[in-house]
Simulated assay, not measured.
Amino acid sequence: MSKVKYYYDSETLSYRKIERKKGRKLKIFILSFLGMALSGFLWFLVYINLPQVQTPKELALQRELNNMELQFELLNKKIDQAQAVLAEVEERDNNLYRVYFESNPIPEEQRRAGFGGINRYKDLEGFNNSKLIINTTRNLDVLTKQIVIQSKSLDEIAKLAEEKEKLLAAIPAIQPVKNEDLTRMASGYGYRTDPFTKARKFHYGMDFTAPRGTPVYATGDGKVTRADNTATGYGNHVVINHGYGYESLYAHLYKYNVRVGQKVQRGDIIGFVGSTGRSEAPHCHYEVFKDNERINPINFYYGSLTAEEFADILRKSQEENQSLD
C-alpha cells in the first residue's frame, strides 16, 4: 500500500493531501528510458572509437611496426639492385667467360629452378604484413640460390682458366734457338733434298743452324721423357712431353742440360747445338708432335717472333732446299 503524502498549506493553516497528477508515472518512465538510451549510445561511441585511443606502449609498438615496414621496403630495393648486378654477371658468365673457355652456358631454367610447386611460405601467412614479408623472403631465397649457382660457375671458370693457362704454357710457342744465335734457318718442314743420298725426301722438322755449343731452349712447359742417343739418325736428342697431346724433339745436340723425368719450363736451356747422329753440320733439328703425329713447327713460334720475323722465317721454311740431316 502506497504511503499517503501531505503538504502544509500556509493559507489555510492546515495539512492537505498531495494528489498525484495523471500521467506523471508515464513521463518518469519515458525520461528514464531516454536517459538509459542516451547513456548506452554514448558508451557505444566510446567503444567503437577505443582502438583509435592508444596508450604510450601501443604508440611505441606502432612506430616500431612502421619502421620495420620501411626496412622491409628498403631491403626489397637492395635485393632488386643485387639481382640487377647479378644478372650482368650471369650475362658475362654465359656470353663471355664460358664462350672463351669453350664451356656450355648455364640454362636460365637451371638458374631459376626450385621455386615452384609447394607453398614454402605458409607459416608466414595470416598476419597484417604477410604479403610484404612473403615477397621479401621469396626474393631473398631466389637471390641466394642465384648467388650459389653463380659462385659454383665462377669456381668452374677459375678451374678452366687455370687449365687454359697450363695449356698455353705447355704448347710449344718459341723457337728452340734464338734469332740472334742463328746462322740461318737451313731447312723447313716438307720435301727436301737428302744431304747424303741426294734423293727427294720428306723432312719432318725444321733445322736451325748455329755454332756448336749454342743454347737450345725448351719451347714449352713439360717433362723430359728422353735424353739419349739411341734413336737412329737423331744423335744426342731430347724429347719433352708437354701434355695435352703435345711433344717436342731436339736432335743432333752437342750435349744435354737435362735428365729424364726432369720438369722444365718454356725458355729453360735443355742442351746445346751440335752435329751428332746423321748430321752434315752443327744445327738443331726440331720437331713437334700432336697426338703422336708430326706437325709443322712453323705454326708454333707466336711467342717469340714479331710479325715481320715470322713472315721471314715462313718464307725461308718453304724454300725446297737441302736439309742438314
Rank of each mutant, 00 (worst) to 15 (best):
T136S: 11
E88G: 03
I134M: 08
L168S: 11
T137A: 14
A170F: 03
T144A: 11
I134Y: 05
I157L: 08
G114D: 04
N94I: 01
D155R: 10
L140D: 05
A173D: 08
V99S: 02
S103W: 09
K145N: 10
K166S: 10
I174F: 06
Q150P: 00
A113C: 02
Y100H: 03
K122L: 12
P176T: 08
A173N: 12
Q150G: 00
D123C: 01
K145Q: 09
V89F: 08
S153I: 04
I171F: 02
L154P: 01
K131P: 02
L154R: 05
E165F: 02
R111D: 02
L168N: 14
R98T: 06
K122V: 09
E165A: 12
K152L: 12
Y97G: 03
R92G: 04
V142T: 04
E90S: 04
E91H: 10
Q146R: 15
R120M: 15
Q146C: 01
A169W: 02
N129C: 00
Y100T: 07
I157Y: 06
D141I: 03
G126I: 03
E125S: 14
K159C: 02
K131Q: 14
N129R: 10
G114T: 03
G114M: 06
P176V: 13
V142L: 11
I133S: 04
L124E: 07
N104C: 00
S151T: 15
Q150K: 03
P105S: 08
S153G: 12
S153K: 02
P107I: 09
G116W: 00
Q110F: 14
E90M: 06
D155W: 07
F115D: 00
Y121A: 06
D93G: 04
E163W: 03
F115V: 08
I106Y: 08
A173R: 12
Y121L: 11
K152R: 11
G126E: 09
S130P: 09
K166A: 14
E163T: 07
K131E: 15
L143I: 09
R98N: 14
N95Q: 10
T136M: 05
S153E: 14
A158Q: 11
Q175A: 11
E125I: 05
L124T: 03
F127A: 11
E102A: 14
L96Y: 13
R92M: 08
L143P: 07
Y121E: 04
E90C: 00
I174A: 04
E163D: 14
T136H: 00
E91M: 06
E163N: 13
Y100V: 10
K122M: 08
I149N: 08
N104K: 13
P172Q: 02
E125H: 04
N119I: 08
E156T: 12
Q150F: 01
R92P: 00
L160N: 13
V148E: 15
P176D: 06
A173W: 01
R98K: 15
L160V: 00
K131R: 13
V89R: 10
E88H: 02
I174P: 04
E88F: 00
K152N: 14
K166H: 06
E165K: 09
Q146G: 04
A161K: 11
P107C: 05
T137M: 10
T144W: 04
N129A: 05
A158H: 07
D141Q: 11
E156R: 10
E88L: 09
D141C: 04
T144H: 10
R120I: 12
N94G: 02
P107Q: 03
